[in-house]
Amino acid sequence: MKVSLFITCLCDIISSDVGKDTVEVLEKLGCEVDFPEQQTCCGQPAYNSGYLSKSKEAMKQMMKAFKDSEYVVGPSGSCVAMLHEYPQIFKGDPDWEEEANKLAAKSYEFTQFIVDVLGRVDVGSNFKGIVTYHSSCHMTRLLGVKDAPKKLLEQVEGIQLRELPLCEDCCGFGGTFAVKNPEISEQMVKEKTEHIMETEAEYVIGGDMGCLMNIGGKLSRDNRDVKVMHISQVLNS
């Protein structure tokens, strides 16, 4: 199966290891992964801040980049959810409506793709450690991907999963919210990391680098001994 990787700008530039693990897991599952080089950012930072026309420029670039792809798979529920908003954003635009519909229809979040399209829950990974899972808001509420990551994690050999209290609560990232409202964001991520500490987990796992960078940044600031990992890194272990 041919898969085009939608790397997301965060994973491309800041956390490239996540991209490598994503590629390796997909290949292990028999996918042929290519990387359309014309891709940039999904446009979410501008779109969510109210800069609709600016965000559209990024979106058009993405539609061009993935025009010929069969499947588009990205290691972020939030960025993929953004692609799924394109049809609504370009509705009635004669030049882009069809492209927007096509891209949304073939785009999947990484774990969603493995479970729903490839039909796999056991990817043959082995990871020793006590982990807790943070379910990111956009992945669960906007994209509707709730169970796939958990199904995959449950099958990882050696893993000990601990339930995160109030795991559905936002970590306080919210894209530009984190820098526009740092005071509130701080309180939210503080509460999130406190719940993580309550689980006594060694690792906190998530499916979105935005949230993980926020949670990880707070854990690191407070010198907490909990490591942050993207789910692709666990599945590639």
């Binding site: 790397i7 994973c11 491309d12 530039i13 800041i14 956390s15 490239s16 290891d17 991209g19 490598k20 990387f35 080089e37 740092p182 005071e183 964001s185 701080e186 991520v189 960078m213 926020n214 990880g216 940044g217 707070k218 690191s220 600031r221």
Partner: peptide
């Protein structure tokens, strides 16, 4: 101001 930011990767994914 409220949390650490990771240094960008040594090599970009692309």
């Amino acid at each position: 101001d409220v949390r650490d930011f990771p240094a960008p990767s040594k090599q970009s994914f692309r």
